[in-house]
Design a protein around this nucleic acid. Structure first.
Lengths: 229, 229
DNA sequence: TTTTGTAATATGGTATACCATAGTATGGTA
DNA sequence: TACCATACTATGGTATACCATATTACAAAA
């Protein structure tokens, strides 16, 4: 059998619904729509130039993702996040990411390692350029590569979704000076452990990274009663 | 401040959408709609007596949950599950459930233990009565209690959702004689370890339970090329 | 001035209508 | 008989219209 994989036609978001889904999700993750903010359907329709049918389906999807919460008798709003929730999310990520990093360290190939290195470089470039969007993309690509190499796409779906909810914190971190500076450093540690094919080291580096991130979130969420944001 | 919590009005599924969501989800989990089966919107509308608007929003929600997959240029269908996916799901559940059981064993109270014992009894009653629905409910209640006591509601949401996808296997297990008989036995092991406040034992019992369940799934999914169901 | 009742408005819930297209059937021609 | 073109049909994508209700604004009465 010949290899037709190169003929595969990508499936870019083609329907209005898929386009709108991406836009609204990105707007929430980027903090353009802030946690707690009401998302009035007709307003979104006008902003995006689509019908309520489309917007409502998008809302249902994001509700199921946990980025939107629907308040009974009131309607949809951007989800809020409190410390208890954030703590649990970091804990779950720590379990899944450390496991994936360990598996990745055992099975990574030369080309996978190259992919990982590129993501890391993009991250470091973005960090120097103070480009938050590029940093986010590079971080996502880095972890996605780890999970893909480890053959754990289900776990990646979960982590990716959890990351969306964690991003609801970002708008708060901008207000404070608490930005994490150590992130890229820790990710290089993870990379080095994987490159050295040291599963135990890789897992430990993941856990350390997330423990630090979690600590920063705790400071933000418990101090000035940012609580339910 | 007085305690008005007893005045709280429960929020039963009130909108047609919420009712339809429950019904369709249950129908998929119960195997009434089989994996791979097309879910034609207008047919569902007629069956449930609601409009397409409602059905489409339900489909979006269940799509995001992974119970429905939408085939481009064709439409929605009940999701199929293959061994690779099932394997990953069992692996993730093993991580999360063992962690929760350990935490539960450390912090459980007398009333929590009582709740757990009742779920276990319901499970054993349902097993003797050959009542699959009751067994499923009791199993869900058992694990939900464990996660709740451990203070891990986010992890519970994830496990609950993964269980929905695993239930896509059930329709296959009915065909074979491979039903698990050891399930209730293993859950009693978990209960005993928690009651004895032995975190390590509880986690080990969880892992053993899931390793067995995973093995049964492997036999079903890899043998007669039930593959993508 | 405060309170209460009523009218107006904002907003989500639901149904329906219309459109585009992929798949299918049908018929005609080589 | 085989193949191709055309018409038809099934089905998802999108927009719009209407309804019910919660909230708000306002006015009148105590």
């Amino acid at each position: 059998m010949s290899d037709f994989s190169s003929l595969r036609i990508e499936h870019p978001p083609s329907t209005l619904r898929e386009i709108a889904l991406e836009k609204v999700r990105n707007a929430i993750i980027a903090g353009i729509f802030q946690p707690g903010q009401r998302l009035v359907e007709r307003v979104l329709c006008e902003q995006m130039g689509v019908s309520r049918t489309v917007i409502r389906e998008v809302i249902r999807h994001l509700e199921s993702e946990g980025l939107i919460e629907v308040i009974p008798n009131q309607g949809p709003a951007v989800a809020r996040i409190d410390w208890d929730t954030a703590r649990q999310i970091y804990e779950i990520r720590s379990l899944l990411e450390s496991e994936a990093a360990a598996a990745c360290a055992q099975s990574i190939t030369r080309s996978g390692l190259e992919e990982l290195r590129m993501a890391l470089e993009n991250l470091e470039t973005g960090t120097h350029a103070e480009n938050p969007a590029a940093m986010l993309d590079a971080t996502t690509a880095f972890y996605k590569t780890i999970f893909t190499v480890a053959g754990k796409h289900i776990a990646w779906e979960i982590v990716d979704r959890l990351n969306g909810r964690i991003s609801l914190l970002r708008v708060l971190t901008l207000g404070t000076g608490e930005r994490t500076r150590t992130g890229p450093k820790r990710m290089r540690d993870i990379y080095d452990a994987i490159a050295a094919r040291e599963p135990h080291e890789a897992a430990a580096a993941c856990r350390k990274h997330l423990r630090e991130a979690s600590e920063i979130a705790r400071l933000i969420l418990t101090k000035p009663e940012n609580g339910p944001a």
